[in-house]
Design a protein around this nucleic acid. Structure first.
Lengths: 139, 139
DNA sequence: GTGTTTGCAAAGTGTTTGCAATTTA
DNA sequence: TAAATTGCAAACACTTTGCAAACAC
């Protein structure tokens, strides 16, 4: 029988990313990666960490989110002016965005295809194609 | 021969939208709609207006952009955290976003099709499907 | 020990708001 | 004149920065 090792994976992720596994980074990595695919804002993650008894400053949460993003552990999603979401799902996928509640939800990428797009302009390459389905309450 | 009437159209747009054609709104409407399809930020439009000798406060530019958006004369595009773009093209279309320069460019909507999307969740309807092609300089 | 990371508080952005003065119909 | 609109300055929300203290290796 496989024994669960709840803390091994976050540590391995940090090591692999070349980030020192400090107390704060480890704790945030656990919050982020041990609960399936998540969409968090800095404020949300900070509040969650505090409630979980982890002492981290908001500035460190911001730093950490950006470091994780640069390392490819997270993806930043922009759907709302003036608020950044970070997505623990870095696989190919898209999003439903609930405009009323601010909720962001994954749409798995496998089935989805965008056809008819022109190629990238000269000297540029496509970093990513994002599909955002904006939802509102049905009238 | 048709005589050009450079100021008639903005005025008609405002009337149709039920917005009083004040000096500021008219001037901003001209800046926005008389130069083809444009993507502007509030700061950009404000600077442009000032340079054109139009006295408008930044607060009024923000108010106006939102009123125009609510009236369907503009569309707000969110591609960059902490900066709102307003698009004078309200037809069906998508965007190239140049991540290095912040430039936003239209992709006409006609040819483009997104397939494989799941339907909207219960109680919600699709307000809009946005396709954003993020570009970076080719390495 | 040495270089990295953290936390705090201050500063920075872009945006919104309250309200008196002005303008429009 | 009555109601809508404007401008200013202050308030806002979110994010970044500078730097001394704490920490990881």
């Amino acid at each position: 029988m496989q024994v669960s090792r709840p803390y091994a994976e976050p540590l391995a992720r940090l090591r692999q990313a070349g980030l020192r596994p400090t107390r704060q980074r480890l704790a945030l990595a656990r919050q982020l990666f041990q609960h399936g695919d998540r969409h968090v804002t800095a404020e949300l993650l900070h509040g969650e960490a505090e409630r979980a008894g982890i002492r981290v400053s908001l500035a460190t949460v911001y730093n950490t989110l950006h470091q994780f993003t640069a390392a490819g552990l997270l993806r930043e999603v922009v759907v709302d002016a003036g608020r950044s979401y970070f997505d623990t799902n870095v696989r190919n996928h898209h999003h439903f965005f609930h405009e009323d509640s601010g909720e962001l939800r994954d749409i798995p990428g496998e089935g989805i295809q965008v056809t008819g797009l022109p190629g990238a302009p000269d000297g540029k390459e496509v970093a990513r194609i994002e599909v955002i389905v904006r939802l509102r309450p049905r009238d």
